[in-house]
Design a protein around this nucleic acid. Sequence first.
DNA 1: GTCCATGTTCTTTA
DNA 2: CTAAAGAACATGGA
Length: 266
Amino acid sequence: MPELPEVQHVVDTLRPHVTGVRIRAVRLHRNDIVEPMGFDLSKALTDRSIQNVSRRAKRIVFSLDDGQSFYIHLGMSGRLIASEPNATVAKHTHLMIEIDRPVVSQIRFVDPRSFGGIFWTNDDTELGPEPLTISSSILARQLAGTKRIVKSALLDQKLIAGLGNIYVDESLFDARIHPERISSELSREEVGRLCRSIKSVLKRAINSGGSSLRDYVDANGERGGFQKLHRVYGRAGEKCVKCRSAITSKVLGGRTTAFCPRCQMK
DNA sequence: GTCCATGTTCTTTA
DNA sequence: CTAAAGAACATGGA
């Protein structure tokens, strides 16, 4: 579910529920989703208040009143939902944070596939620059340093942090760049186009509330609408919206990749 | 039963 | 060292 636009939308919908709110209790139903393993989340969070919620790459970062911070990563199927305390507890609810609010008084982390988790650290030095604010020259520098195909490079969070399979494919289509082009061989003009495309695709996705394929909903349980606007992702065999050629699908770097063979020439 | 999935990380291989 | 390929993690839907 969660690439940058989905995570941003979760953060935006979560913020009004938790900003300035005190944590009353923490119920952890699975301790292997907390890193470091064995960390006492309850001790660290109880009676602290949440100063702010923000996004870094695909991470949902919580800042506390004692200056500490931690993040939740949604993995592939994670949801973070504001709930009423008496709402039915969904299967695979791994964490419930009780907050000091009269109505919506729980934040629940539900994650069937358990690829997500809670990470007690604020170290983001492993992450590359943010896609929404990266400059064309920085992107060019990042891409110049690798001979991998551009599809794989853009998925590398150390190179640029926040894109995933959907938005890499959509951005490459928008920029008319073939996913198998060698990163370091892109022209300055192509990188400029790619930089603009990444931002416009992500902004449009955020404005649509993200892409809901199966699991994804925001903190209020609402689905996004950007899946209806996908131009290549999930459209293999269908006609290209620009040239009517058939959209091609191919596994690249272990990930299914959709592109238009005519609009995105090698 | 099979295949596939919006993510990340590790191992093997070249 | 770089990078590609494959597997692993766990679950559910088609």
